[in-house]
């Protein structure tokens, strides 16, 4: 039966690749952190606080990347009814929300010495904040139904609607911010990046992606196992 044949193969495959992905993620993040904290230079204006960038920027990348993954998974769930797509979307949403939160929190920490305030309504930060709300809505809708299939379907439609809206929201927030802040505040990432800063950034970015992949696989696996346990429990309840 197609619903379960695929998951079986998925589980076997993920068991093989998972350790490798996890090890590579840990290695890359370790190397990236070392380069970021010890090798790369401090900024002549910002001092050591520029090192927050090595967590902030990859987190912001992940926030967008994971939302894109969710939208793609949602589309394949709605169009082809692929049985794993819903699980991928469900597993990814909280991870994406955490990365988005991390981007906001590090942005705020970075902003304090720069702007003298924990929060400014900068166009980038504000769009990321809205993205965070989109993640929260997706997670809330997914969990709001007693029937998990319905929650997954509704959340898939919402993810696609949200995905179409992300560029519109981003554009309007930028428009809004230029209306209200004609003099641009210091941007969170400089226009040109020196290679000594680029390498740690890339290592962190790739490390974060692999870390997400590993975490997502673990979460999908546990969802599959939980479904199996549930099915067994209902079967047992019916047998008695």
């Amino acid at each position: 039966m197609h619903r379960f044949a695929n998951p079986g193969r998925f589980l076997r495959l993920s068991n093989i690749v998972l350790p490798w992905i996890a090890a590579m993620a840990a290695g890359l993040i370790a190397v990236g952190l070392y380069l970021a904290l010890f090798v790369s230079p401090a900024d002549y204006q910002q001092g050591d606080s520029v090192r927050i960038m090595y967590v902030h920027v990859p987190s912001a990348w992940m926030a967008m990347f994971i939302y894109t993954v969710i939208a793609a998974a949602s589309a394949s769930s709605l169009i082809w009814r692929h049985p794993l797509a819903d699980l991928v979307a469900k597993a990814s949403s909280p991870i994406g929300a955490c990365f988005t939160f991390l981007a906001l929190a590090t942005g705020s920490l970075w902003g304090k010495p720069m702007w003298g305030a924990w929060w400014v309504w900068d166009a980038r930060l504000t769009s990321v904040l809205v993205l965070f709300f989109l993640y929260l809505g997706h997670m809330a809708l997914m969990g709001a139904f007693d029937n998990p299939t319905r929650g997954a379907r509704a959340a898939a439609i919402l993810a696609l609607v949200g995905f179409v809206n992300v560029p519109i929201i981003k554009f309007s927030v930028e428009w809004w911010s230029t209306l209200h802040q004609p003099s641009s505040v210091l941007r969170l990432d400089g226009p040109s990046i020196h290679p000594s800063m680029l390498w740690p950034l890339l290592a962190m970015g790739l490390g974060f992606k692999l870390y997400y992949l590993a975490l997502m696989l673990v979460r999908v696996k546990s969802e599959l196992i939980a479904a199996r346990v549930n099915a067994r429990a209902t079967a047992a309840a019916e047998a008695t």
Partner: peptide, 19 residues
């Protein structure tokens, strides 16, 4: 058909209405 749909709607709709 969701539990507490009335509270959910603002969470879903407000971000989309920002533009």
């Amino acid at each position: 058909g969701a539990r507490r749909g009335g509270v959910l709607i603002p969470l879903l709709v407000l971000p989309l209405n920002i533009p």
